[in-house]
Simulated scan of single mutants.
Amino acid sequence: MAWRDPRTDDRDGRGWPLDLAATGRHLERCIEAGCEGFVMLGTLGENSSLTADEKVAVVAAAVEAAGGRVQVIAGIAGIAENTGLAAADSPQRMKDAGAAGLMVLPAMVYQQESREAIGHFRTVARAVDLPIMIYNNRVAYKVDLSPEDFAELASEPNIVAVKESSHDSRRITDMFNRLDERYEILCGVDDLALENLLFGAVGWVSGMANCFPHEAVALYRLAAARKVDEAVELYRWFMPLLHLDTEIKLVQYIKLANQMTGYGSQNVRAPRLVLSGAERDRIAAIIQRAIDTRPRLATAA
């Protein structure tokens, strides 16, 4: 019998099977820590590595685990959803699975200009009656919607929020100055969380909250309460971890943190591979240092 390296085993191309029971346990612990909602099938959910049926199963499992206590948002992205018309198919399935809203990305294959991206988002918005949060990430997806672009989309009533990931904290103030409170703005970049929250973001779609939910909730609450000195102290401890969310291998880095903190597994599906060698040692050392130096304030929050 051939030996397989468990760090790279992809189950003969089928990929690691979903562990929906573990997903439910993970969400339960995050709810207990104070998390107020979940975005499923985002980057960390390895959206483009799942089949359409698996995506539905993940959302349905999350809705069941949440039990009405918090809302579940479904990410709409991936190669299979690279046009507005194709993406308009998935939202109805997500709604049927119980999703309370959608996080919608630009088309993933063709790098659109802003006019084309606006057309894409309009197509999806008009195909469903769920509230939509647009994921604006010019770094990863090479599409940048400006405040003027969002002014054009303001006529679509179910586009209600923006996950702001342009890596420019000035953008939040520009959005408020141009559009007042037409959209709810949420931080989408972990290592800009405090700045974004202090500048007016009403929420944080966090990667590291998957592994350090108590600390993430504590940071959010301190920022919301304008307890800046305490927030800065916690943020400085958190920052080496938060930087991991902005790397190309953020999925592998955060899933390793999940495993080391007891919240999940480091397993990933192709084309990603589990970390190994010096890279794994380096990331594990960052995570372990954070575990060893956890501040009392955060763990007690």
Rank of each mutant, 00 (worst) to 15 (best):
A127S: 15
D245C: 13
I76R: 01
L198G: 00
E116Y: 02
E28A: 15
D12V: 05
L50R: 13
G188W: 04
I31W: 09
N210R: 08
P106V: 01
S114H: 13
S146C: 11
E116I: 07
R69D: 13
E46A: 08
K255Q: 12
R14C: 04
D19A: 13
M208D: 00
A87V: 05
A97M: 08
R182I: 09
L234C: 10
N136Y: 02
C30Q: 15
I73Y: 01
T23G: 01
G68Q: 03
M103S: 09
S166A: 14
M175F: 11
D292L: 07
L41D: 00
E247S: 12
V268F: 03
A151R: 15
D19V: 10
P106C: 06
A62F: 07
A33N: 06
L219H: 11
V70I: 13
A87W: 00
N82F: 11
I287L: 08
R93D: 07
M175R: 01
L186R: 05
R296G: 14
I287V: 15
L27T: 14
V202C: 08
E215M: 15
M1H: 04
E181A: 07
A224V: 13
A218W: 09
V128N: 00
A284W: 02
R178P: 00
A22R: 15
L145T: 01
V143G: 04
A257E: 07
P17N: 08
S146G: 09
E195D: 15
D292G: 10
M94N: 05
A161G: 11
I134Q: 06
V109H: 07
D53W: 03
G45F: 09
P106G: 06
C30D: 07
M108V: 00
V160R: 02
A22N: 11
R7V: 04
V143D: 03
P271K: 00
M260F: 07
E164R: 07
V58N: 00
A2F: 10
N196I: 00
G15S: 06
L256E: 12
E164T: 07
A225T: 14
S49P: 00
A218V: 12
D229L: 14
L219Y: 08
E233I: 08
R178D: 05
I132M: 04
S165P: 04
D5E: 03
K249V: 01
A193T: 11
A2N: 07
L222F: 10
V274T: 12
R25P: 05
N136L: 04
E247I: 04
L250Y: 14
Q288F: 10
A284R: 08
A88R: 00
L194T: 02
Q288I: 13
G84K: 01
L242Q: 08
A151M: 12
